[in-house]
């Protein structure tokens, strides 16, 4: 056992990754149906891609999966920060490096041969989605408990503004997830890494 190489993704990371993914899928699909009950951006979501069947069912799913995301997301962030992985994997990060890697990627020249090392675009995307998840949870808290959380409510500009923040943060999260899945399809080994650890 002693000569087993250290996994690229430790077990806590793989576990919280898949739990977060499950929570995000449930929250997005049920959230779209809740949004459909009172849309504000002139669009509605096709019912076929929603979860819950009706408003009450969608809310039951949404307000159950929120605990999964809160618990698993917090575990992810804590383990990431305390283990030093957050710093070693995601920093340093510069705007210039992101631009350079984006340019390289657009020419098909971005190397992806070491799954233990994230390029600058990956670093930026993963950090963005961490911040976005926090924003989703905070704006969701305001929608759930706008009277009981006055400070958070005012920070987000009030109840109605929080609805828009929650929606836009959802759109960022879903866009990330779509690009993420496409990238995994291009580099299938990364899927195995996230399952087996190496």
């Amino acid at each position: 056992m002693a000569d087993t190489p250290k996994p690229i993704h430790p077990i806590w990371l793989r576990l919280t990754h898949w739990l977060n993914a499950l929570a995000v899928v449930i929250l997005a699909m049920s959230g779209w149906l809740i949004y459909n009950a009172s849309p504000f951006f002139g669009i509605t979501f096709p019912v076929a891609i929603t979860l819950g069947g009706w408003l009450g069912g969608a809310i039951l799913w949404h307000f159950a999966a929120m605990w999964l995301l809160a618990a698993s997301g917090l575990a992810y962030l804590l383990c990431n920060a305390l283990s030093g992985r957050l710093r070693s994997r995601f920093l340093p990060l510069s705007f210039r490096a992101v631009l350079a890697d984006l340019r390289a990627a657009s020419r098909g020249r971005l190397t992806h041969d070491d799954p233990g090392r994230y390029n600058a675009v990956q670093r930026a995307a993963y950090l963005l989605v961490m911040v976005d998840a926090v924003l989703l949870i905070l704006s969701g808290l305001v929608l759930w408990k706008s009277v009981q959380l006055p400070l958070l409510r005012e920070l987000l500009g009030g109840y109605e503004a929080a609805r828009r923040v929650h929606f836009i943060a959802m759109a960022v999260m879903v866009s990330f997830a779509l690009i993420h899945v496409i990238m995994v399809a291009l580099v299938p080994r990364s899927l195995l890494t996230m399952i087996r650890g190496r």
Binding site: M29, L51, G52, G53, G57, L60
Partner: peptide, 14 residues
């Protein structure tokens, strides 16, 4: 009734 309303095809596939 509840299930007919709360479990769509989407959730079944899930």
């Amino acid at each position: 009734l509840f299930l007919e309303r709360s479990l769509t095809l989407g959730s079944l596939s899930l």
